[in-house]
Design a protein around this nucleic acid. Structure first.
Length: 829
RNA sequence: GGGUAGUUAGCUCAGUUGGCAGAGCAUUUCUUUUACAAGGAAAAGGUCGUAGGUUCAAAUCCUACACUGCCCACCA
């Protein structure tokens, strides 16, 4: 065996083995309990990053752990079409070829996108295989598969028929760059430096040039003003309420109204009401029955203004309008002002609020049950604290805009009746799976489908039932058996966007929760604590880490940092540490395997255990119970810590070292016994570790099983001595360790390093405790020095006479007299 | 503004039911010995964010504050 674990060849071998043997494929089996996880489907926007790696590794760990426990485990792989994000990527791609979305046309553009999808999804699936994901590869689901699409249509029709989906012209969030409306959840706010302009709105018919001062950040929307509002308790303006002011530049008349939402202390305390382009203004207008004037269109151009501004871009118009206001004496002052501006979560360009006719889903109606299942504990967040914000969020939820003006996605299943000239008739649109044959109102046979597609999160929300083909009414055995699933593993950044909606939809469509547990993990950050992003160039490619350190190292490092709910900072160092640990395991296995010969193994239970065996078994039992609990409670970081600690600082540092001496000084029969226990414990650790580092553990277990088939649960066991108390074992061990530490300290202090001086240590030691032990074990000490004389005899002749030969092994031996049996005679050495 | 998480060694973080402050990395010193130098042995490094309180005993429980991050919101 090589000194260093050759992960490249071995990991590749196991990856292929698992896929070829369909190790993790699952079928309905009523005799077994299912344990089901659905992968959060990755968008087809590019390859997987470290965050994905963390996400899938955690799921893989859970699946493998549960499979070991005998569950019928299923982990479903999947890919998301990704809506706007993917469309943007493809648009960039075709831009390089000198094409645009419009020059290609809808059909050709979608063809291109499908091509891209195929390429990228294959890449993603390959990456998942390399990471070792125990997925059922026969069940790959894509959110735009025919079957899945049928579920999406079914959901839309279901909700529409219940009156929960409606179409209305409302104030919406509009992204010019993406050319589509966005839901409130898809907007990210960023603070931005801007100005606050103070503008005079002259009082109508005022004899002495009276005016009110309006403070605004949006002077370009001035033509959309329909009123001016003050707080009804603001004494400065109380007399002005219900008076009329003239809009600067056009002199249009505006009423001064009052509304409690106006903050007296902000700006001038007077706001202009522009309901078509501002959320608050829209609410004020609704409360006061004001009209709505749109002054910005979906192309970011000014409309409904005077000639000189119509058609101008917002930014240009703003400058021009401010200049004009200044020129005409309407501008009082300009202040620097920092405020937050909504940005598109996909392209980061500014969001405009404007009026548009869109499809909406009444979410409030399907939220009540969703709130209940969490507060009743039917669904549990890990960590718990997310349950609270989940509740708060759902209670304040607003209608969800589900239509998007893009091409890539699920086309809205609504058909409009058109006349012979291609114009839409007044007939009520028909909602159906396929194009209707004839209009039920006018018998017309021509239809046009709604051009828009659904929000990608609408189809994502169906994931837990969509993957089991909910849309198909005939064949739902999978859905019955595997749904509800067991646990959802995801990052906190998509709780509202995705998790909440799956719960809402799951409850609405099946009456059942989609999963019982939600395991929330953090975001992977770089070593400076910054979020990884392509623009910052700090993205770490998991595949590169795998090539450098191996998959097991990657997995162990990620698992080690996975404190539920907390972000993790990860650097090369973390992978290096894991790599070292993996190598340590490899070398421990080398030690064991090197010692195995054909006759080495005991074939039945061992009754007479040495103290040190009792100790390691005790420690193992301790570790096993902690590790099992940690696995169950999603504290994967604790799993790794406990195993690391037990394996390295207990099994390797003490137990193996003890075993060396014991095997050295005892008869062949005893040696067999010792080796058997050594292997037994080792196999146990390998099993505990298997979910986290499946490659090296599978490899070593395989080698061990080829060499020996005896040490297994069926025909081998360790019978503990019931008379020995746990505390006695622990104290005894502590005592030994303490003495060894003292000897070391003494040796260091005296700078004793040659073998001959060893006896001198004992002669000058003044620690009574140690002296006691040493007196008792005098014969072993002799024995020990003899060993050294023989074993290291060659060293004496070396010119380097400061070589320390007092290794840990022999230190341990010094104090072992009480605890092991020495059967061999000195001369055997 | 509301919510939420965090603050422990130079760095990254553990620390369960309150009971002698821990690990790894980095630093310093020693160490090629037969599983492993990707190893082993040791040293140094701490007012556990601040201030109160409860307790025989607080990193841990309570209160307030400070700072940091994140989420939400109606910052004209």
């Amino acid at each position: 065996m090589e000194k260093i674990f050759n992960f490249r060849a071995i990991e590749k071998k196991w990856c292929e083995y698992w896929v070829k043997n369909k190790t993790f494929y699952a079928k309905v089996d009523d005799n077994k309990k299912p344990f089901v996880i659905l992968i959060p489907p990755a968008n087809v926007t590019g390859s997987l990053h470290m965050g994905h790696a963390l996400n899938v590794v955690l799921q893989d760990i859970l699946i493998r752990f549960k499979k070991l426990q005998g569950y019928n485990t299923l982990w479903v792989p999947g890919i998301d079409h990704g809506g706007i994000a993917t469309q943007n990527v493809v648009e960039k791609l075709i831009k390089k070829e000198g094409e645009t979305k419009n020059s290609l046309g809808r059909t050709n553009f979608l063809k291109k996108t499908w091509q891209w999808k195929n390429e990228v999804s294959n890449k993603i699936l390959d990456q998942l295989k390399v990471i070792g994901c125990a997925l059922d590869w026969d069940r790959i689901v894509f959110t735009m598969d025919k079957k899945y699409s049928r579920s999406v249509k079914k959901a839309f029709i279901w909700l529409f028929n219940k009156g929960l989906i409606y179409r209305k012209k409302r104030l919406v969030n509009w992204c010019y760059k993406c050319g589509t409306v966005l839901s409130d959840m898809e907007i990210e706010y960023e603070s931005e430096r801007s100005s606050l302009w103070y503008i005079k709105y002259p009082l109508k018919d005022s004899t002495n040039n009276e005016y009110v001062t309006v403070a605004t950040t949006r002077p370009e929307t001035i033509f959309g003003d329909v009123a001016v509002a003050v707080n009804p308790t603001d004494e400065r303006y109380i007399n002005l309420i219900n008076k009329i002011v003239n809009l600067p530049l056009t002199k249009r008349e505006l009423k001064v109204i009052s509304d409690y939402i106006v903050d007296k202390s902000f700006g001038s305390g007077v706001i202009k009401v522009t309901p078509a382009h501002d959320i608050i203004d829209n609410e004020i207008a609704n409360r006061n029955n004001l009209e709505t004037i749109e002054t910005i269109d979906i192309n970011a151009k000014i409309i409904n203004a005077s000639e000189e501004y119509n058609g101008l871009n917002i930014e240009v118009a703003r400058k021009k309008i401010v200049l004009k206001l200044k020129e005409k004496g309407f501008l009082i002052k300009t202040e620097d002002y920092v405020h937050s501006v909504g940005k598109c979560y996909r392209c980061s360009s500014k969001i405009e609020f404007l009026m548009s006719e869109q499809w909406f889903l009444k979410v409030k109606e399907i939220s009540k049950k969703a709130i209940d299942v969490v507060s009743e504990g039917k669904i549990v967040f890990h960590p718990k604290s997310w349950g609270k914000s989940y509740n708060l969020w759902l209670k304040n939820i607003k209608d969800w805009c589900i239509s998007r003006q893009i091409w890539w996605g699920h086309r809205i299943p609504v058909y409009y009746c058109i006349d012979n000239n291609g114009h839409r008739t007044n007939c009520i649109p028909i909602v159906s799976y396929n194009k209707p044959k004839s209009c039920i109102y006018c018998k017309n046979k021509n239809f046009v489908q709604d051009k828009d597609v659904l929000d990608t999160w609408f189809s994502s929300a169906l994931w837990p039932i969509g993957v089991f083909n909910w849309g198909d009414n005939k064949n739902n055995f999978d859905l019955e058996y595997f749904y509800p699933t067991s646990v959802l593993v995801t990052g906190y950044e998509i709780i509202y966007l995705w998790v909440v909606r799956m719960i809402q939809f799951g409850l609405e469509f099946t009456g059942k929760i989609p999963y019982a547990d939600i395991f929330i993990h953090g975001i992977v950050r770089d070593k400076f604590g910054k979020k990884m992003s392509k623009s910052l160039g700090n993205v770490v490619d998991p595949i590169k880490i795998i090539e450098k350190y191996g998959t097991d190292s990657l997995r162990f490092a990620l698992a080690q940092s996975a404190v539920p709910g907390r972000d993790i900072q990860i650097s090369d160092e973390a992978f290096l540490i894991s790599r070292n640990f993996i190598n340590k395991i490899w070398n421990a296995s080398r030690f064991i395997i090197m010692n195995i010969t054909d006759i080495d193994i005991v074939k039945n239970c061992i009754h007479s255990l040495d103290f040190i065996d009792e100790w390691i078994i005790l420690e193992l039992e301790n570790t096993v119970s902690k590790v099992k609990y940690a696995y169950e409670s999603y504290s994967i970081n604790i799993v790794t810590r406990e195993i690391y600690d037990f394996f390295w600082s207990k099994y390797c540092n003490w137990y193996i070292e003890f075993s060396k001496i014991r095997m050295m000084v005892n008869s062949v029969e005893t040696k067999k016994r010792i080796l058997s226990i050594l292997i037994y414990i080792f196999k146990y650790i390998l099993q505990l570790m298997y979910p986290i580092t499946p490659f090296i553990t599978s490899e070593i277990l395989q080698i061990l099983n080829q060499k020996i088939k005896i040490v297994s649960k069926n025909n081998f066991c360790l019978i503990k001595n019931k008379n020995i108390k746990k505390n006695d074992i622990v104290n005894k061990m502590l005592n030994i360790q303490d003495i060894i530490v003292k000897i070391r300290a003494f040796r260091n202090e005296m700078n004793i390093s040659s073998k001959i001086q060893i006896e001198a240590i004992f002669n000058v030691l003044d620690d009574n405790n140690i002296l006691e032990i040493i007196k008792e074990n005098k014969k072993y000490i002799k024995y020990f020095t003899n060993i050294n004389l023989i074993k290291f005899g060659k060293n004496i002749t070396k010119p380097k006479n400061s070589v320390s030969i007092v290794t840990k092994t022999y230190e341990i031996f010094l104090v072992l007299g009480d605890f092991i049996n020495i059967e061999k005679e000195k001369k055997d050495f």
